[in-house]
Design a protein around this nucleic acid. Structure first.
Length: 653
DNA sequence: CAGCAGGGGGCGG
DNA sequence: CGCCCCCTGCTGT
């Protein structure tokens, strides 16, 4: 009996663990996923040259191998809580080729100085898996991870003479510089770029990748392609060096650190910068650093509107100004010790880096240095004056920068005509307008929300349904939604991530902001079209050429909210603001003496008419009738289509 | 809810 | 290359 109790307690302990694990997986993957999740018990040694992917059949409703939580990941989760949304979710979408050789292949020869094969490569997923801990990620991230976590080599050293500090993480050195030397961490920027160990590691993995890819290509075509092994002959030297394989189908330049691929060299170059920690541009007033010049400008116009913007001063000299964005707190903390809790911590911290293409974001969030706040001249908020300015951007060419101080620069404001609010950019206005218009309507009741996630919450809590983000479909549960997504929208239930349910009132246009938007009124049988449109617009796979798609998005953009702003500089004729929703009309009437007031009447319709050319009349009608909502993928960001109808009631000045 | 930063892409010089 | 637009995510209030 007692013995039975012991067994029982052991059993219950086991159950507790299982329950805990289920709970975790449930949170991560949803209810249905728990069955399919396996704790990535270290598949054992990695000495073999090849080891298969998880030995499971890939059912439609099942999770793919790469979606499993590895033991490492689980440990990280348990220690650090749940990962940011980017991880294990949308951002991490390793491509899988169901029919493919889903195998992890390691190099035949270990990397000499490392005495390790470092990582195995999976051509189907284009991902590397660390041989020491099964972390999975893109080349650069895995290389960085392995060097920092598993390598005994402290490859990165403090550049200051006499200081013997060294670490396997470049970020550790940066942090060390800032913390211990109060020095400019930017001085260590070159560490990541020019480190011989990291370079060697990268080349080693790159060779592995090339070899595996080439072999794969040969297997597929049955013939050996050209000697280069890449179909993209046009890949230039830089791209070829960084990724011989090429990226997304047909793209000339593919990033080795993330799935990004493009045909444009300038975009690729620009993109590369985001994987480096260097930020070659800075705001010369507050010293905040940026990796793009236009971001400096945007920042400047937001934060220092009363100061003249000088393009020539934003590029940082190599000497380095006082840096504000110190290196990582992520890597170094746990990096010192490659084992034990530290390692877990590293792993957890690095999870974003490894699993999320936006690793820099994740790091950056942790690294944001408050020191940047020590601004010499943070511009006081501009007092709004409602004098209509015609696009007074004094920030253009250097020649126009030094205007008389009487004309303060960048006074262009985006004002709401329903209230006294004004924002610094178009997007702020768009989003703000949603608070008045509440475009996210529940299909089951009268509830309206200003934000998609609120509607989703409402639908879930009140109606106990899961809303499809792409159509009015309401599922009873996660599983049903996943099936629906797969069947109706051809979207695989990756991690069963459920887009927030978005139903919109109005549905005034044929498209919504850049993101997916099915036409508001979809005739029966038009579902496929709608789905296709949604899929295309969602930025995902589309059969359209990118240019065409972009142009259409632009055209749609013109038709949607505030496109008119680009046509109207506020100096045009005035026009009447469109009617508010009834509940606001009265309210606003009392609150404001109509700021919308004297809006130019012009263009509203001129621009609008032009825009409307892209909008089927039926959708206008739909809007007028507040008929079927239309749906968009992008939460509150996408300005509702009927904004296109209403867009002319706000004024940029 | 709003401010802000960061990323992708189009366009023109 | 610079500028612009759009979209997204994070964060503070």
């Amino acid at each position: 009996m007692e013995g039975g109790g012991g067994v029982a307690s052991v059993a219950s302990l086991t159950m507790d663990c299982e329950d805990m694990f289920k709970e975790i997986t449930k949170k991560l993957y949803g209810e249905e996923a728990t069955v399919g999740v396996s704790v990535g018990v270290n598949v054992g040694s990695v000495v073999g040259v090849e080891f298969p992917a998880a030995d499971r059949d890939l059912q439609d409703d099942d999770l793919r191998p790469e979606e499993h939580i590895t033991a490492w990941g689980l440990a990280a989760l348990m220690q650090n809580g749940f990962p940011p949304p980017g991880i294990l979710q949308a951002n991490f979408t390793p491509r899988t080729d169901p029919s493919a050789e889903d195998r992890w292949t390691a190099a035949e020869e270990p990397l000499a100085w490392a005495h390790s094969r470092v990582a195995a490569y999976n051509p189907a997923q284009r991902l590397f898996k660390c041989t020491d801990c099964e972390c999975v990620g893109f080349l650069a991230r895995v290389a960085e991870h392995w060097l920092g976590t598993h390598s005994q080599a402290r490859a990165f050293q403090c550049p200051l003479a006499g200081c013997g500090f060294a670490s396997g993480w470049a970020r550790a050195v940066r942090q060390h510089l800032a913390r211990d030397h109060h020095s400019d961490p930017a001085a260590a920027d070159h560490l990541l770029r020019d480190n011989p160990a990291l370079d060697d590691l990268t080349r080693y993995l790159q060779r592995l990748k090339s070899k595996v890819e080439a072999a794969r290509t040969e297997r597929r075509t049955g013939t050996s392609n050209t000697s280069s092994g890449t179909p993209n002959q046009a890949v230039d030297a830089t791209a070829a060096e960084s990724n011989v394989v090429g990226g997304e189908a047909g793209k000339r330049y593919a990033c080795t650190a993330c799935p990004y691929a493009t045909d444009r060299r300038d975009l690729f170059t620009r993109h590369e910068n985001i994987h480096r920690d260097e930020k070659p541009f800075h705001c010369y007033l507050c010293q905040k650093q940026f990796n793009r010049a236009d971001h400096v400008k945007k920042h400047f116009l937001r934060m220092h509107r009363d100061q003249p913007y000088d393009l020539n001063r934003i590029r940082r000299s190599s000497g380095g100004k006082p840096a504000t964005n110190a290196g990582g707190a992520v890597g170094p903390v746990g990096a010192v010790g490659p084992s034990g809790a530290g390692a877990v911590s590293v792993a957890a911290g690095g999870a974003a880096a490894l699993f999320c293409a936006k690793a820099s974001d994740a790091a950056g969030a942790l690294l944001a240095a408050p020191a940047a706040a020590a601004l010499e001249c943070r511009a006081p908020p501009i007092k709004l004056e409602r004098s209509p300015l015609a696009k007074t951007e004094s920030v253009g060419s250097p020649a126009t920068q030094h205007k008389p101080s009487t004309s303060s620069p960048g006074e262009r404001r985006y004002a709401c005509c329903y209230c006294a609010w004004s924002g610094v950019d178009n997007w702020c206005l768009k989003r703000h307008l949603n608070t008045h218009l509440k475009p996210f309507a529940c299909a089951l009741c009268e509830y309206k929300a200003a934000r998609a996630e609120r509607l989703a919450t409402h639908v879930h809590k009140v109606h106990n349904k899961k809303a499809c983000a792409k159509c009015p479909f309401l599922a009873d549960d996660q599983h049903q939604l996943a099936l629906h997504l797969r069947d109706a929208h051809h979207i695989e239930s990756r991690n069963l991530k459920v887009p927030s349910g978005v139903g919109r009132t109005g549905g005034g246009g044929g498209f919504s902001s850049g993101a997916a938007a099915a036409p508001a009124v979809v005739p029966a049988g038009g579902g496929q079209v709608a789905a296709a449109a949604a899929a295309a617009a969602s930025g995902g796979v589309t059969s359209q050429p990118a240019g065409v798609r972009r142009r259409e998005q632009r055209a749609a953009g013109a038709a949607r909210l505030f496109g008119y702003l680009e046509a109207s500089d506020g100096s045009g004729d005035e026009y009447e603001p469109p009617p508010l929703p009834p509940e606001y009309a009265a309210q606003q009437q009392q609150q404001h003496a109509t700021p919308a007031v004297t809006h130019a009447q012009h263009a509203a319709h001129a621009a609008h008419a032009a825009h409307a050319s892209h909008i089927p009349h039926s959708t206008h009608a739909a809007h007028a009738a507040h008929a079927t909502p239309h749906f968009a993928r992008d939460k509150e960001n996408a300005a509702p289509l009927h904004h296109a109808m209403h867009h002319d009631h706000c004024l940029r000045y």
